[in-house]
Nucleic acid binder design. Structure first.
Length: 152
DNA sequence: GCCAACGTTGGC
DNA sequence: GCCAACGTTGGC
């Protein structure tokens, strides 16, 4: 089993929005970055656990845990001209963008802030805290996962 | 294939 | 709102 971290702006889609979805499940659409696409298409497997990270907000940090419930499939929002994430270069016969479905597991008791994560030398290899990192989906090692959860 | 211009991300 | 960092685009 693998561990991941996925970013979302809470003003767009936050942990509460996920919890309130039917079946507490939603497709993670709109990712338009090849590295992140490859992870969703090729590597994320059913049962993998994912940290939900709130970005671009007052208190950026990890707020909850979710689970992959459907593996990579084409991101249909890329085909819809009326969608914000429309990409005319993604052909339904040869989709450029992929997504997975994720399900709410639980909220953390508190937000583990970016500031706090940056202070931990144990997490210096975590992509999230590396300078200039903008990846919206990233792998988390089992050691990093356990270490972060122990901070809760 | 290089690289300047541009757009986006996301912390602060 | 600012701006550094980075990815993408497109002219050459």
């Amino acid at each position: 089993m693998n561990y991941w971290l996925m970013k979302s702006e809470p003003s767009e889609f936050g942990i509460d929005d996920l919890q309130n979805m039917p079946d507490q499940t939603e497709h993670w659409d709109g990712v338009r970055n090849y590295q992140a696409r490859n992870m969703m298409r090729d590597q994320m497997k059913t049962g993998d656990l994912v940290f939900f990270y709130h970005s671009n907000c007052k208190e950026p940090g990890i707020v909850g845990i979710m689970e992959v419930v459907k593996e990579g499939y084409p991101d249909f929002t890329a085909f819809d001209p009326d969608d914000n994430h429309f990409d005319p270069k993604s052909d339904p016969k040869n989709p450029r963008w992929f997504m997975v479905d994720i399900k709410f597991v639980r909220k953390l008791k508190r937000t583990i802030t970016l500031k706090e994560l940056k202070e931990k030398t144990e997490l210096s290899d975590l992509a999230l805290v590396r300078r200039g990192n903008r990846l919206s989906i990233m792998p988390v090692s089992a050691e990093q996962w356990d270490f972060i959860l122990a901070l809760e």
